[in-house]
C-alpha cells in the first residue's frame, strides 16, 4: 500500500476537476447567524431573567 492512497495526481495543489472555491459568503453568514443567536440568547435571558 502506497503512502499516497490516491496516487494518480501529485500530492498537493487543487485540480481542475476539484477546485477549491471561495465560500466567503458562507463565512459571513456564519458570523451573522452567531451574532443573531447571541443576541437572541441575551434577549431571552433579559426577558425572563431576574
Amino acid at each position: 500500500m502506497s503512502d499516497s492512497p490516491s496516487s494518480v495526481r501529485a500530492p498537493g495543489a487543487p485540480t481542475a476537476a476539484n477546485p477549491t472555491r471561495p465560500i466567503t459568503p458562507i463565512y459571513v453568514a456564519v458570523l451573522l447567524v452567531e451574532a443573531v443567536v447571541l443576541a437572541a440568547l441575551w434577549s431571552f435571558s433579559r426577558y425572563f431573567g431576574a
Partner: peptide
C-alpha cells in the same frame, strides 16, 4: 451555552486552513 461561543469562529478558521491542508496532503 457560552462554552460553545468560540466554535463558529473555529470552524471558519479550520475551513480556511487545516481542512484544505489535510485534504490536499492526502
Amino acid at each position: 451555552v457560552q462554552f460553545y461561543f468560540g466554535l463558529p469562529i473555529a470552524m471558519i478558521i479550520l475551513s480556511l486552513t487545516l481542512v484544505p491542508f489535510f485534504y490536499h496532503a492526502k
